[in-house]
Design a protein around this nucleic acid. Structure first.
Lengths: 110, 110
DNA sequence: AAACTATATCGTAATATTGCAATATAAATT
DNA sequence: AATTTATATTGCAATATTACGATATAGTTT
């Protein structure tokens, strides 16, 4: 045991979970916010920005990249990371839908 | 090592990470979707709905409750769970803000 | 009160995540 | 070509998560 039973859930549920999980660590939220803040495409100074060692940051970047929340392109000997709009749009749409439905319902529950 | 260094990040970053992490498992996404689907406040049949044992579901519910994504109230010997709108509104706002900013920027990065 | 129902908690095994030092890789500069 | 710079990978220890059987708790029904 210990492994998530992904096969029992829908692709969409797994997808939302994957995106959410990728943002389930404050360092990764901080990375996204930093990439938002700096207008130009930023390369390696995310490491300087975060209170974590370079390998740790590299690992967090990898997870964000695997979840497709960011994308990186090679720029000389550095790598240029930036936000992948699509995934963030998906999250926006998902939570917008839920909030909309909740408002319509005005459930008097609990 | 192994523990997240929450103290190095802002409260807001930690909060978004906590909410995201709570949704970082397909079972918990499924629970939220199920609670959306059933109009009335549902009690224990979440267990029947999910492909997981009762203690496992109980544990997932606890995590959603800790993150304040759901709330439960005692209803006889059963417990009535339902979505906590506030937290989902926070997530909606967070991702809406990011998506809005991204659209405005139209960054030509990567 | 005994039996039943609904949910939570405990204990534990399997697995995953977090963090970093050390090291590897690869492009850029000297 | 040696050095520097930027990033990734490896290996590993500490910790957290996932899942569930067994058991506890607490209200309900008989």
């Amino acid at each position: 045991m210990g492994a998530t039973k992904t096969e029992h859930f829908t692709d969409y549920q797994n997808h939302i979970a994957t995106l959410s999980k990728a943002l389930g660590h404050p360092a990764r939220v901080a990375i996204i916010e930093y990439l938002m803040e700096v207008d130009t495409c930023i390369c390696g100074d995310i490491v300087n920005e975060l209170p974590l060692a370079q390998p740790t940051v590299s690992q967090h970047l990898k997870e964000l990249k695997n979840a497709r929340l960011i994308k990186g392109s090679i720029e000389g000997n550095a790598i240029c990371y930036c936000i992948d709009e699509k995934s963030l749009t998906k999250l926006r749409d998902y939570f917008a839908n839920i909030s909309d439905s909740l408002e319509k319902k005005k459930s008097n529950c609990c």
